[in-house]
Design a protein around this nucleic acid. Structure first.
Length: 981
RNA sequence: GCUCAAGUGGCGGAAUUGGUAGACGCGCUGGAUUCAAAAUCCAGUUCUUUCGGGAGUGUGGGUUCGAUUCCCACCUUGAGUACCA
């Protein structure tokens, strides 16, 4: 019987699903282990071979952990709210739910075919009302919470209300909006309900505010900072402008420090930690107040270098700064206004792109230096950003290059406050080993001491205080989209009201159009039934809205990251209707032990999910403050695009394509190409016009990779069929001949690019499973290279792992007709050595996540066993278990042929015994290479003690020979023995 | 600009407490089998050589008996980030 991957894989996939082999229990004597993949967004294009890479890795680990005796939770689901389904709906009118449902079906079919050990009974979909009911519920919890800096955690809003009614807000140390006015207990109690609500909203962890947001007119929605790349939308590349809108925001800034601290407690990749650290952007320094001369105003600045305060020679405000209009002098007014207007017109993108140009205007006003009392000019300049710090800087031109450039450009003084440093060419931004000068009480101090001293003085004299600043902004949580979670919010008297949790979910209403309304409201503005009846507690028609009991519902929906910020907790108890997960389930599974996914989520999903987890932890809704102990970023599998080279120009003859080699020569020598084309014309008996223009060019075109074989030769017939407009084209081969019969080859150009439909380089895993089987696909994806690295797909390489599987099969199907034969004889030393070498390697490899090298050891093992003609049960049985995480189907098949009636996934991982390696040590020749290195010749059956004895004896000889005492002796059984002097 | 990661055959990649560089696979070459092809099996495959050797892990230095591995400088590539005061 031949190795029939199709039959085997179909059989076992059905078996697993029927027997619910991988269903995890929430109670077990075994230790728990939670392996999670980042759940996919089910796009219309389906899976390509790049997608399952991380899933295969996590599946191998999950299966391995089962063999090691763990109760493994390995779930999967869908992040099914998203923009593509909505845009498709806008174009076709098809409901996104329907598109999503269809796409999920395709995904599920494709995933099933690869043989994952997912527990599908726990599947979640973020767009299911049973799921987003709890997303809405968490939103309500956030609304009902405030951040107490004294206890350093989120607390119920009721604790804040009781403080207010007892003591007012002057003593409250909370993370809240800036510029909150102080009130007493009496004042609080005298406030109207609406006034109280307005104040509380400034403290809640999710709050409404008029924020300047990134508005994308083309998409009709607001985008978060991480959804914008180079000033255009990440999806679609549309321009983005700044716009003020009333939006829900999440007070993630409250958690800035804890999100930073938490990074030290989790095993995540360093680059990812770095980018989160960077994104949070903690910087330590001081706030300093400068009085404005002749005005009752202060300019607050944040600086990381307060020690350089005696180097201040001017101040710069952002053009948007609120003080600008107040302090500008009469003479400077026109100039300043013109500048402010000009900057406002420029988009963020222009300002970013135009870093080099120095621009700014003097306001005519002066600030007073807090220590010297000197007058310093106040300028405005667009190099100062309104959104960071206070929107104003104290400029120290000798210590900051931007201030330096600005001062040089406008001829402002550049006082030097660094001892022995030349600042005639550029600013000095070095800190170490430099002492301050011309700095009054800071003279002679270094950076560190200067910082301490100046902050002490600032605080003592009331000019400022030490401060830690974060770059992390509060996250805008509203989207003007249809296909997202509706807010459980209605508006009474203009104030947002939460719908009581027992009436959730608030289900997405039907709409006729998925576009924003004509008066600019979000798509939910199209819904007729979208009002809240507070007496019946249900969603009712908009026509019924009145002032008494029925109110309009929120028209925005939640962003994509809402549902993905807590889904890992839902898998623990996916069907619970009373809680988002039961306490028992949460206490049992606690957190994800291994999380695998792409690094592109570093400052999006992974940061927001940590934020929500910390919030839920504060409110004692989850038992741990970090949701994933270990995280691995799998690399991307890129495509290998293929190119044909089309001759282009105002040619009056049929289309011509050049083979790669000929193209390489012709592209720099178009004259040669021209005469060649002429010759070809003369030789050719085809009837095309003889005229050839000199204006030649060659353009590479993508061609579908499925028309190209492993040696990069193009199947011209297939290409012509695919592109009928080129059916009469002429193909010129490597040597410059017209390709007629078999006289020449057409070779395509190759380039590694991201897999994408438009580049025709997508490889579908279905086709690979069909031809080589899922086991081959799994082995090959691992074999391609290290998990974390991105690497190009090359289908030709798969033959290696495929023939490995065939060899393994043949080893145990050696009967005349290929029937299963297994020997009961005891294994020989060499056979045991092969087995145990493999056990050791595979065990280590999986523990280190270097899956690629285990595939190599499987191949070595099977090659060695084939050479020994070993088909013994004693070897096969453990070998099948070793291979089963990687190639589960063939492993199950062999396992059942060995007479087992349960799945191989219940088998124990074989135990490595070192004696099998030591005892089969081979002979090693001595080589004396002139100095201190020796390799010992050891007898065949020498054991460990004997080796050590021999080495000891040898050490002595060496001591005499070299006159030195050896420092270290390395004994590697089966390899070499070295003596190091 | 800054931060991080990485540079090893024709290709993907092995080799980490510093100890036989190029495992394993692809590709290629030769052979066996075959009418032929596919499949399979065997041998070879870093470069160079006067067949003794010699050189060799981006470049140049350093530490060491010994460096792909550690240190310094530089070059290249990739990723992230960017007027953050």
């Amino acid at each position: 019987m031949q190795y029939d991957h199709k039959k085997i894989e179909e059989f076992w996939q059905e078996y697993w699903s029927k027997n619910e082999t991988f269903k995890a229990s929430n109670t077990s004597d075994k230790p728990k282990y939670y392996v999670l993949d980042m759940f996919p967004y089910p796009s219309g294009a389906g899976l390509h071979v790049g997608h399952p890479l991380g899933y295969i890795a996590s599946d191998i680990y999950a299966r391995y952990k089962r063999h090691k005796g763990f109760n493994v939770l390995h779930p999967q689901g869908y992040d099914s709210f998203g923009l593509p389904a909505e845009q498709y709906a806008i174009q076709t009118g098809q409901h996104p739910a329907k598109t999503t449902e269809e796409n999920i079906k395709t995904y599920r079919r494709q995933l099933d075919r690869i043989g994952f050990s997912f527990d599908w009974s726990r599947e979640v979909r973020t767009s299911n009302p049973e799921y987003y009911k709890w997303t809405q519920w968490i939103f309500i919890q956030l609304f009902n919470s405030w951040y107490n800096k004294d206890s350093d955690k989120a607390e119920d809003i009721s604790t804040l209300v009781s403080i207010f009614s007892a003591n007012g807000n002057s003593e409250v140390n909370a993370v809240c909006d800036e510029d909150i006015s102080i009130f007493s207990a009496d004042e609080w109690n005298a406030f109207s309900d609406k006034e109280q609500q307005e104040i509380l909203l400034q403290y809640r962890l999710t709050f409404l505010s008029d924020t300047e947001v990134n508005w994308c007119p083309a998409l009709g929605t607001v985008l978060a900072n991480d959804e914008i790349v180079n000033g255009v939308s990440e999806r679609g590349g549309h321009p983005v402008v700044r716009k003020k809108m009333t939006q829900w925001s999440m007070r993630i800034s409250a958690y800035a420090q804890r999100l930073l601290d938490g990074l030290n407690t989790i095993d995540w990749p360093q680059p990812l930690k770095d980018s989160q650290t960077n994104w949070i952007g903690r910087s330590q320094g001081a706030m300093v107040s400068f009085d404005v001369d002749e005005h009752d105003a202060k300019i607050d600045v944040f600086t990381t270098r307060p020690d350089t305060i005696f180097g201040v020679s001017f101040m710069t405000l952002a053009p948007e700064h609120e003080l600008v209009s107040r302090i500008v002098t009469h003479e400077q007014k026109d100039e300043v206004n013109a500048y402010v207007e000009a900057t406002a017109k420029r988009s963020e993108r222009d300002r970013m792109a135009d870093v080099k140009t120095i621009s700014g205007v003097f306001t005519g006003a002066y600030a007073l230096h807090p220590f010297t009392g000197e007058k310093v000019q106040i300028w405005i300049g667009d190099y100062v950003l309104a959104s960071y710090g206070t929107g104003a800087v104290m400029a120290v031109p000798c210590g900051d290059q931007r201030d330096y450039d600005f001062a040089k450009h406008f001829g402002i003084d550049i006082p030097n406050i660094f001892e022995g440093v030349d600042i005639s060419e550029q600013a000095n931004d070095a800190k170490d080993g430099i002492k301050l000068a011309n700095s009054d009480f800071l003279n002679g101090l270094n950076y560190k001491k200067g910082m301490k001293t100046v902050i002490y003085e600032l605080e003592k004299r009331g000019f400022g205080y030490g401060k830690t600043n974060y770059r992390l902004r509060d996250a805008v949580f509203s989207r003007q989209r249809y296909w997202g979670e509706p807010f459980p919010v209605y508006y009474k008297d203009g104030m947002p009201q939460m719908i009581d949790a027992k009436h959730l979910p608030i289900v997405l209403p039907e709409v006729e159009k998925y576009l924003p309304t004509e008066d600019g409201k979000p798509p939910l503005g199209n819904a007729d039934v979208w009002a809240w009846d507070t007496t019946k507690n249900e969603v009712v028609s908009n026509d019924l809205i009145n002032n008494e009991t029925i109110f309009p519902l929120e028209l925005n929906t939640m962003p994509g990251w809402a549902g993905s910020s807590w889904y890992f907790n839902r898998y623990m108890d996916a069907h619970n209707e009373n809680e988002f997960a039961s306490k028992e389930a949460l206490d049992y599974w606690k957190e994800v032990d291994l999380y695998i996914g792409g690094s592109e989520h570093a400052t999006g999903h992974l940061l927001y999910a940590r934020f929500w987890q910390k919030f839920l932890f504060d409110r004692e809704l989850v038992p741990v403050g970090e949701f994933a102990k270990k995280l691995i970023n799998q690399g991307m599998i890129t495509g290998t695009s293929a190119f044909v080279y089309k001759v282009f120009g105002s040619l009056r003859f049929p289309k011509v394509f050049l083979s790669k080699g000929y193209y390489e020569r012709a592209k720099d020598n178009l004259g040669m190409l021209h005469s060649r084309l002429k010759t070809i014309h003369n030789e050719s008996n085809k009837s095309w016009e003889p005229y050839i223009d000199y204006d030649l060019d060659i353009i590479p075109h993508h061609t579908d990779v499925s028309f190209v074989d492993s040696s990069d030769e193009l199947d011209i017939e297939k290409y012509k069929k695919w592109r009928p407009e080129f059916s009469d084209a002429i193909f010129i081969g490597e040597k410059g001949q017209i390709i007629d019969c078999d006289n020449d080859k057409y070779i395509v150009g190759r380039e590694v690019e991201k897999m994408s439909k438009s580049k025709y380089n997508v490889v579908n895993p279905d086709n690979i499973c069909e031809e080589y089987g899922a086991d081959s696909l799994r082995l090959f994806e691992m074999f391609l290279g290290p998990l974390e690295q991105s690497k190009p797909w090359k289908t030709s390489g798969i033959s290696g792992v495929y023939s490995f599987l065939k060899k393994l099969w043949k080893l145990y199907h050696s009967g005349e007709n290929g029937e299963f034969i297994v020997s009961q004889d005891a294994a020989t030393k060499d056979e045991l050595k092969t087995l145990h070498k493999t056990i050791k390697k595979v065990d280590e490899d999986i523990a280190n996540f270097s899956f690629n090298t285990s595939v190599s050891s499987f191949m070595i093992a099977v090659n060695e066993l084939s050479a020994l003609k070993c088909n013994k049960r004693e070897i096969l049985e453990p070998l099948a278990v070793l291979i089963s995480p990687y190639a589960p189907h063939i492993a199950e098949e062999l396992w059942s042929k060995l007479g087992h009636t349960t799945s191989i996934s219940t088998a124990e991982f074989p135990v490595f015994e070192e004696k099998h390696l030591v005892e089969s040590t081979k002979n090693y020749p001595i080589s004396f290479n002139g100095k201190m290195r020796f390799t010992l010749e050891l007898p065949l059956d020498m054991n460990k003690e004997e080796i050590e004895k021999t080495v000891m004896a040898y050490e002595k000889t060496q001591e005499q020979l070299a006159g030195r005492t050896p420092k270290k002796v390395i004994v590697v059984p089966g390899k070499i023995v070295n003596i190091v002097g």
